[in-house]
Amino acid sequence: MLDFLIAIVTFTAIYAMVSLGLNLQWGQAGLVNLGQVAFFATGAYTAAILTRANVPFLWAILAAAALAAVLGALVALITPHLREDYLAIVTLGFAELVRLILLNEKEIGNGPNGINAIPQPLHGVAGANYPLLFALLTLAALAAVFLFNERLRGAPLGRLLRAIRDDESVVASIGKSVLAFKVEAFSLGAAMAGAAGAFYAAYLTFIAPEMFTASVSIYVLVAVLIGKRGSNFGTLLGAVFVSILLEGSDFIKDYIPFGTGVQIAAFRIIVMGAVLMLVVLARYRTMVES
């Protein structure tokens, strides 16, 4: 039971980092991103490859974040005017592209077989308590991401991103490059997903392309949508909800008499879809009313 709790805390912290990245992009700057999993995967693969080459974990996290940030900037720059509708399509397509490359390029991560035996940081230090140590490391990283986002939200930079979200023509009319700020916000959000990917790889010690499907992007989208738009705390709660739904259903299946694993897996996708629809409907109504 305790093991399970530690596992769920670790997963939640990782998902929360990915979600906070999306919250920076969408919640603050209004940038749609349906392919956050691409940056998560980029980070996971980068860190996996580097740590296997004996690069220290801390450097691997930074490299994972940096590469994800660069890719994020590229995606932002190739999207015409970073318009909402184009962004939705480009990010969705980009995530699929990344997954297909990982699946088919044997050179990068052994194609469908993925990368295994990924080293874990500080392994052997804590012995049997290692999962707890790793959970604490992940929570520390989450705290850093959360504090950064909160600081940004309260800073003039956050104010400007919200101005862009409200009406970018105003921001252009006062002489500020909307494009530059959007690229910056998108890139930062991608970096957070990249860093989370590094923890994901180290936690599982095994990664494969099948773990990085579009559903991950949807899960983090749900986490962000549940909270009040732009609220980092809301996103955190959203991430807790989503990971309990995701991981908790695996746990419950041993205790409930009905339903096979497959049925429960299908069930949680239905629940996720229903939550997404409810949230979007509620949002839509408040939007129409205002």
Binding site: A155, R159, L160, S173
Partner: peptide, 23 residues
């Protein structure tokens, strides 16, 4: 074209260029 979710004051405070706080 007011910035709807910002306060009236913030609508003006976003104006000055190259703010250190926006970096």
């Amino acid at each position: 074209h007011e910035l709807r979710e910002l306060s009236v004051l913030e609508n003006l405070m976003v104006v000055p260029r190259s703010q250190f706080g926006e970096s």
